[in-house]
Amino acid sequence: MVDEKVQIKEVIGAYIKEEFIDSGDQASFTFDTPLVSSRIMDSISTLQLVDFLEKEFAIEFKPHEVDQDNLNTVELIADFVSRKKEM
């Protein structure tokens, strides 16, 4: 279980870094870097991320779950994805 979560984090982290992080900011990017509140990701990139997560992990976000509380950091996203996968 722990291993799986680590793996989920790696996958999400790699995707976000590749798609949304400016080359100059990549060095300081961590799993705790705020993404939505810092506006590194705008609303459109957030939706793109949700699309990716749904396909990659075969989960589904309910309308109200597309929210900063679930998406602000790689840690939070991985928590959410793991919870969904267990359901």
Binding site: S43, L47, F61, K62, P63, H64, V66, D67
Partner: peptide, 12 residues
């Protein structure tokens, strides 16, 4: 404002 940015909420 939060729903306004969330197309799934808007469609619902």
């Amino acid at each position: 404002e939060a729903s306004a940015k969330n197309p799934r909420q808007l469609a619902a």
